[in-house]
Design a protein around this nucleic acid. Structure first.
Lengths: 195, 195
DNA sequence: CTCCGTTCGTAACAGGCGTTACGGTAACAT
DNA sequence: ATGTTACCGTAACGCCTGTTACGAACGGAG
């Protein structure tokens, strides 16, 4: 195995370690040593790849952004109609399985850690605004007759609802099963006339 | 001033200190020393009133529960119709001003701190389930003709939406002004036929 | 083969953390 | 007035944290 392959493989392992610690142990236990232990390396390597602890959080958030972006772009491409695309994209933002549940936990953890940290909160806002614009674009395509304000209002209702239910389900999966979340999403889309 | 009055006044000051540190500095800076500094006392007093740091978080969450419960009960009592009550109760759950914005920050901070803590997460679930049941009750009163499943689905959509927008607005008030949140709420209630 | 630069493990540092122990002080009872 | 008790400030403990410094090992270049 070449050297660069080793490096990128270790980078991936480190990414997974950051992710899993934040997702499974929460923000407060996201320490350099915990990440090193999860990655099977030492704090020396971790500090070599990340200048400080804040960038661990930042990295997890950027990972979340990248993963969801790739997923929604695939879903958009695979969708037959704009309304199917809208539904598929919103659906993947809820906490329907263990994978998406962990994503919600990471989202919450980063948000909590970004409070009172200008740089981190800026990243949060960037990502959220991109997400909002995407859903607005999909909503506009799904309801071409709507004016901009209607589009913005309904898109906000939809992203807030899916993010909210993801947060609820992240902390209490038993009380918010996937079927309930999907029923909720379909009820909302139906109510707004987007079915 | 009597002694018990002093004590309860100091307890209130301590409560405010816990709250403000969590709301303004975030979960990670919610330390015993930071609370003591905010309350103008020493760590000795803090540790006298709270057995350990975890109960600081727990206290903030219970404070949030109490405050919102009292507020929604007032709003319910003051509402003319079931639908007005539903709207008023949902409305106060969004982040419309600095006060409610801080409440959303506390909600997020506690949730992030409760990950991987059985006792704290149990409190979170208790409170969220009570909140959900309240909104289900209000929804059933606002739409008596609905069956239980429809009530549960729409109530979930409403609490997820308001909690979600509160989380968004907590971290980016400029991008989610109160007027947008209210418009979103009214659009949702209208779409579900609850206006 | 030798040299060099990168990579990363080892070890330590200073600082902040939660928590505990102890002593002084102020209010109440007698 | 005096003893008692609850309250809380002081100070310290040990631990864990982020971060840094240093040296060894390894791969590539000449």
């Amino acid at each position: 195995m070449s050297r660069t392959a080793d490096r990128s493989a270790q980078g991936a392992a480190l990414s997974r370690a950051v992710w899993s610690v934040l997702a499974e142990q929460g923000l407060e236990r996201l320490t350099v040593r915990a990440v090193a232990a999860a990655a099977g390396c030492t704090t020396g390597l971790v500090m070599h790849r990340f200048p400080n602890r804040r960038t661990l959080l930042l990295h997890a958030r950027q990972l979340l952004h990248r993963v969801t972006r790739e997923r929604v772009e695939m879903l958009e491409a695979a969708a037959g109609t704009p309304r199917e695309a809208l539904r598929a994209v919103l659906r993947q933002g809820m906490a329907l399985d263990e994978r998406t549940r962990q994503e919600a936990v990471v989202w919450i953890g980063f948000l909590a850690g970004a409070i009172a940290d200008d740089e981190l909160i800026a990243e949060h806002r960037r990502n959220n605004r991109a997400w909002r614009e995407r859903v607005e674009r999909l909503t506009a395509a799904a309801a071409p007759e709507w004016n901009a304000e209607r589009v913005a209002t309904v898109a906000l209702a939809l992203i807030a609802m899916t993010e909210g239910v993801a947060a609820y389900a992240a902390a209490d999966p038993g009380a918010f099963p996937a079927a309930d979340q999907e029923r909720m999403l379909d009820a909302a889309l139906g109510a707004y006339g987007l079915t």
